[in-house]
Amino acid sequence: MEWSQPEIKGDLVTSRAGHAGVTIDENWYIVGGGDNKSGATETLMLNMSKLALSVLTSIKGRDPLASEGLSVCSALVESENILVAFGGYNGKYNNEVFVMRPKPRDSAQPKIFQSPAAAAAAASVTAAYALTKSEKLDFTHLEDSNPKLVQVNSFQRDLSAEINAIREEKKVLESSLAEVKSENSDLMAKIDETKNTYAELSKELQSVQGQLVAERSRCAKLEAQISELQKTLESMPSIEQEVQLLRRQKSALERDMERAAPVQRQSSGGVWRWIGG
């Protein structure tokens, strides 16, 4: 079993929620409701055999019947069906009781079906709605009783073809959905693999960061040594000047010693001669 959406004929009504409904025979009466901004002022009746929606009556916007969450029921009083409504909320909570006597409507000539052709169209809509639920309708006896309903069979065949096409499309969509699910499963597996790879790379990155910290410390020590060497190199010119000065002093001393050597030899010879003589 599945839901279907039949074509509804009749009055155009406002959207609503929080309404109440009750059925009497083949009619469904809908009272109240709203859209969180204002209450629905129309009391509706849906003829379920003809799928015809009509407005029975309208009330003022602030009327207690234009409320959300009210309750409604039907009762048989003196062989007459009546509607009884109670409560609801439309900015304030209500405790009034309201009664309405639904007037019998001309079911053969309702407001939206005023010609035999329109009646035949209504029968077609009803048949289509029943077909979506059972798909086993037989309109042979209707054809025999009313020639105007011959078009129903054609409509039924077209609708059956559309239903079959929709079923085939549904199968294709289900197949596509299965493929998408399979692709999603593969993507999830790849995502998990990527996460594992990311975790391993994160560990390697932490290890490399530790090595980088050690290398930075080593570089800092090397920079300190280089700074000391640069200071030593900066003092080299003064050292060279001192060395040159020492060399000049040494050269001068050597020259003085060479000059003093003959004098010492002469002085030594005279002494020995004096001693020998």
Rank of each mutant, 00 (worst) to 15 (best):
P6E: 08
E7P: 12
E7H: 14
K9R: 04
K9L: 10
K9T: 11
K9F: 06
D11Y: 02
D11P: 03
D11L: 00
L12D: 12
L12H: 14
L12V: 14
L12G: 14
V13D: 03
T14A: 12
T14P: 09
T14Q: 13
T14Y: 11
S15K: 11
S15A: 12
S15E: 14
S15G: 14
R16H: 10
R16M: 13
R16A: 14
R16Q: 14
R16G: 12
A17G: 15
A17L: 13
A17F: 13
G18V: 14
H19L: 03
H19E: 11
H19C: 13
A20G: 08
A20T: 13
G21L: 01
G21I: 06
G21K: 01
G21N: 10
V22C: 01
V22R: 00
T23N: 02
T23L: 06
T23I: 08
T23Y: 00
T23V: 08
I24G: 05
I24T: 12
I24K: 08
I24R: 08
I24S: 07
D25C: 15
D25E: 15
E26Y: 08
E26I: 11
E26G: 02
E26N: 12
W28L: 12
W28S: 11
W28F: 15
W28E: 10
Y29M: 02
Y29P: 00
Y29R: 00
Y29T: 01
Y29F: 09
I30R: 11
I30P: 02
I30M: 06
I30Q: 01
I30H: 04
V31K: 04
V31N: 00
G32N: 04
G32M: 07
G32P: 00
G33C: 08
G34M: 05
D35C: 04
D35Y: 03
D35F: 03
N36Y: 13
N36D: 10
N36M: 05
N36R: 09
N36W: 15
K37C: 09
K37G: 06
S38G: 04
S38D: 02
S38H: 06
G39T: 01
A40K: 07
A40N: 09
A40G: 15
T41Y: 02
T41S: 03
E42F: 01
E42T: 01
